[in-house]
């Protein structure tokens, strides 16, 4: 039906940092089938694969507002603070961010540095 057509993938999203891949079905700020929620950035969105509702979406990622790299929303790759920043850009400009963010990034770097290498 209509919803079925809308969740047909437009392409495959691939994070340029961690290579996580998933088919996306929408790019923009108003995910389909949802009226009450808007996104604050141009996002790559798929239907939430873990629930059955057609109005459930999952934001996969978006472009870094500094370097335009396509990055996923995973905490190892990017963060959102009013807009999307990939972690390398955050680190390069760490001083521009409030202390809470700095601490947070410090914490992420700390114990384990998950592979930023593409998975095989």
């Amino acid at each position: 039906m209509a919803s079925e057509a809308e969740c047909c993938p437009l392409g495959v999203f691939k994070c340029q940092l961690c290579s996580v891949t998933a088919p996306y079905s929408y790019v923009g700020q108003k995910p389909p089938n949802t009226q009450a929620v808007v996104l604050l950035e141009e996002s790559y969105v798929m239907k939430d694969p873990f629930t059955s509702g057609t109005d459930r979406f999952l934001v996969l990622g978006s472009r870094c507002s500094l370097c335009s790299r396509l990055v996923c929303v995973g905490p190892e790759c990017s963060l959102f603070y009013s807009r999307r920043f990939c972690l390398p850009c955050v680190q390069d400009n760490i001083s521009a961010f409030p202390r809470e963010i700095q601490q947070d990034v410090e914490k992420r770097k700390g114990p384990k540095r998950p592979s930023s290498q593409p998975c095989p």
Partner: peptide, 8 residues
């Protein structure tokens, strides 16, 4: 500010 969505 860390949340990338908004509710109407």
């Amino acid at each position: 500010y860390r949340i990338n969505l908004s509710i109407l």
